[in-house]
Computed example of a mutant assay.
Amino acid sequence: MEVKVLSSGELILASRANQKEGHFAPLATAMWIALRQFNGNPEDAAAKLSDVWEEEFHSVHSILLEQIGEWRDGGFIEVAH
Rank of each mutant, 00 (worst) to 15 (best):
M1G: 14
M1N: 08
M1W: 08
V5M: 01
L6Y: 11
S7W: 03
G9H: 06
E10V: 15
E10K: 09
E10P: 00
I12Y: 00
I12W: 00
L13M: 10
A14G: 03
S15Y: 12
S15K: 07
R16A: 14
A17M: 10
A17F: 12
A17R: 14
Q19D: 09
K20F: 13
E21A: 09
G22V: 14
F24G: 02
A25M: 08
A25Y: 12
P26S: 08
P26I: 13
L27A: 13
L27Q: 08
A28I: 10
A28F: 05
A30V: 02
M31D: 05
I33E: 05
I33W: 02
L35V: 08
F38W: 11
F38N: 09
F38Q: 06
N39I: 00
G40A: 08
E43L: 07
E43N: 07
D44S: 11
D44F: 07
D44G: 01
A45I: 05
A46D: 06
L49Y: 02
L49S: 03
S50M: 05
W53Y: 11
W53V: 00
W53R: 11
E55K: 04
E56P: 04
E56W: 05
F57V: 06
F57R: 06
F57S: 06
H58N: 05
V60Q: 01
H61G: 01
S62L: 10
L64F: 05
E66T: 10
I68N: 01
G69K: 06
E70K: 11
E70W: 04
W71A: 02
R72A: 14
R72E: 15
D73P: 01
G75C: 11
G75I: 07
I77V: 15
E78D: 14
V79G: 09
A80M: 11
H81S: 09
